[in-house]
Design a protein around this nucleic acid. Structure first.
Lengths: 150, 150
DNA sequence: ATATATGCAAAGCTTTTGCATCGAA
DNA sequence: TTCGATGCAAAAGCTTTGCATATAT
């Protein structure tokens, strides 16, 4: 499935919800919308706060945010990662695939993509007769600024 | 720094503690020992429980485990990662590195290592001026058996 | 009409912190 | 002897859950 824009992701959410016999709610759409348009990875509370700012008329509760995040991750529309001292953070899967360089000192995240690595991952999967659905890769270390400030 | 065995890692801990003008305690050594000998990634509570089993005479508190884990991660003897629904887990940096192919259907895990990927990771880190301390990569998918039983 | 989803508040976990005491150097 | 480290318990954070109500279908 290739999703080129936000509407398409929202449509995908509708399709999944319908297929599962669940109900389509504005809250789930809002949570997804926030993540689709986020510049960076967001914690559950970040999402909650952004909703209060961007959709002040929505009286969403933090519990609903958590439930929506869990649901969206389960159906593969978003992904969570957590590192260092910071808690779990989420990002939309609609963003083009990339891996992460994470500074364990200041928390900075640099996204990158390497075609050769992607190809090799496929090859390894094939060799082991796995059918890959997703993958994640993180390089942990210290960014330039943090190395200097030591 | 290359560490080929456990004693060497413990020595490294002693060196670091001394260099920082801190005090060497059995508790920090025990926490490190647990992680060095762990078969898998452990949560703070896992570590605490294993200590109670392996060193029943040690009256360590959970707060000390957290403090030791934070310290050991800070000085780069261990690494924490967290993904998906699981919480934060720790592993010793002395263990030989490998990546994972994970079957999301039956849970089977295949470990692998690809030199070319490792090299490229280094190159990417260097390009971004990061000093890598560790990394993790997971390929999620369906193994052969689970594909067939569908 | 029916069953899922929500909001709220309470409950449950996980992790951190204050403080008196202990112990390594 | 000194000052960092520990254990305990309390506090603080973060996430989940129970329940009555609201709402999508």
């Amino acid at each position: 499935m290739l999703m080129t824009n936000n509407e398409e992701v929202i449509e995908e959410l509708k399709r999944i919800v319908k297929q599962k016999g669940l109900k389509y709610t504005e809250q789930r759409e809002i949570v997804l919308d926030i993540l689709i348009n986020a510049e960076e990875h967001l914690s559950a509370e970040d999402v909650y706060n952004q909703i209060k700012t961007k959709y002040p008329e929505s009286n969403i509760g933090i519990a609903t945010v958590y439930r929506a995040l869990g649901f969206l991750e389960e159906v593969n529309l978003i992904t969570s990662i957590a590192f260092g001292t910071e808690g779990k953070k989420y990002e939309s899967n609609a963003k083009s695939h990339h891996d992460h360089l994470i500074c364990t000192s200041c928390g900075k995240i640099v996204e990158f993509l390497d075609d050769e690595i992607e190809k090799r991952q496929e090859r390894i999967a094939k060799k082991n007769k796995f059918k890959i659905t997703s993958h994640s890769m993180q390089l942990y270390g210290t960014c330039k600024d943090c190395q200097e400030s030591k």
